[in-house]
Amino acid sequence: MNNHADSAVHQIHRDDVGAKMGMWLFLFTEVLLFGGMFLVYAVYRYQYPSQFHLAAMELNTAMGTFNTIILLTSSLTVALSIAALQNGKKILSLILLSATLLFALMFMVVKYFEWTAKISHGIYPGSPELLAKHNGQILFFGLYYVMTGLHGLHVLIGMIVIAFMIVFVARDKVTTDNYVKLENSALYWHLVDLIWIFLFPLFYLIQ
């Protein structure tokens, strides 16, 4: 991409590649953050395979699957919103971004019901019921709460970022010729989706 102005002295310098490079570097720190947790998960699953299976049976696969579909669809809508803006369709882009926000909210609502159901069954970190279980199961639920919790926090942050993008697009701060902010926000959102792609089979699909 070439951002050099040929004639205009007042041309505001913009470095879209640099902006995206910064975003990718940030995403790698995120990958390493979650990577460390996946490593802890892998070692303990290797150590307590049967306990992990037993504990995972208590998770609601239907809710996990539903959330997977929601998150994949939200990734689609945010990708489409960029395509719409590239085609100069501002309203369509705004609708798609709002849909993304709505899906993110749905994800958090499902997560809320899932967590409250677990907590009302007495399964939460440090609960007497959980501590009475085998070590492997305590570890499984500890990892479940930490990893899906941190992921949920990322969903919340992503929602705030997308809300800002809706305002920016609406106010023409992000436009057909200048949409790197939207691209970077979408990259963040796709990363949140990517992490869930691995969390889902590792926590919900051990039968």
Binding site: M1, D16, L76, L80
Partner: peptide, 17 residues
């Protein structure tokens, strides 16, 4: 700025989804 990258169409995204 000249954006000479190829843009991905709606159809491709929907197929991937």
């Amino acid at each position: 700025s000249v954006d000479n990258k190829q843009h991905i169409g709606y159809g491709t995204y929907i197929l991937v989804w």
